[in-house]
Design a protein around this nucleic acid. Structure first.
Lengths: 149, 149
DNA sequence: AAATAATAGTTGTATATTCAACTAATGGAA
DNA sequence: TTCCATTAGTTGAATATACAACTATTATTT
């Protein structure tokens, strides 16, 4: 583990991304927990679009979040169990579920916003804004490299 | 979903990193599968250090992979079930498991190396090397921002 | 030497992810 | 209009993650 090869392995991009992803997830949950809020980062990633859209279908959430429809099904299950959202069948197309925030869901959304801001600040501390921009740009390029193949 | 706020949400860093992480994981597994190999990215991330170190403890793997010791326990379980590694109790400290590659494990390691290279190439296609360097640097900085708090 | 603290791993519980296979509803083509 | 393909969502099985609580072993302290 002490030679050059191992260091190179250590710095592998996939591993770095995975580690950072896990760390951000953990930090977000911790910050939320300290504020007395019970929500995971993935639940938040789905709750956000539900809030902005108003009556998103699960398909839309799936596309928007780059998550499998299965994942959306299960996250919406969890949110529904917590009484944060409800599934309402679409009037015109019976295949579609419209996901609607409950009052508690709206409340939680507003409570979590500052947690998100705090987490973002902790994550990007001491990193130049220009590097953050390049960082996001690379992420976006990787997504388009892997998206439709 | 069509206004400025939603776009901003869409471009959220945590979400981007999560999406990219999932996409790379999926692509790696697909590439391995096409080559007739059955291994996940996380299994590979643990198998690599086992190979380089020779007789790594689970604690070392945990530190090295930025994964919880629980995760290591379970990934090693999986690798053991597949007869890729064995747990050997340390002679001096009975608390420690030494994780050793089997012949099949060494074989798989060598078979997977080109898959890793291929995946890396697909991921970083059309992205300038200088941007990749900044990208990795930002990832490393985020890790140190979140590591010991 | 005996009590206590620290370390290495495991197990239980809850959440998240993917793929494949499935149901149900919609839309188009013969 | 009937058959067929597509679309939206669910379910099952396998893998991965974190935290808390646990056992067993080693190290430290009094």
């Amino acid at each position: 583990m002490e030679n050059k090869n191992s260091l190179q392995f250590h710095m592998n991009m996939g591993k770095l991304i995975g580690s950072v992803h896990n760390m951000i997830t953990r930090r977000f949950v911790q910050n939320a927990h300290e504020a007395g809020l019970d929500i995971s980062l993935d639940q938040w990633m789905v709750l956000g679009p539900i809030h902005y859209h108003g009556d998103a279908s699960q398909k839309l959430l799936s596309d928007f979040c780059f998550k499998d429809k299965t994942s959306i099904t299960r996250i919406v299950n969890t949110l529904e169990k917590k009484n944060l959202v409800v599934r309402v069948p679409d009037q015109l197309d019976q295949r579609i579920n419209r996901i609607i925030l409950t009052r508690a869901g709206k409340q939680l959304f507003n409570d979590v916003l500052p947690i998100m801001t705090k987490t973002k600040k902790e994550v990007s501390r001491n990193i130049p804004e220009t590097d953050i921009e390049i960082f996001k740009d690379v992420l976006t390029r990787i997504i388009s490299n892997l998206e439709n193949v």
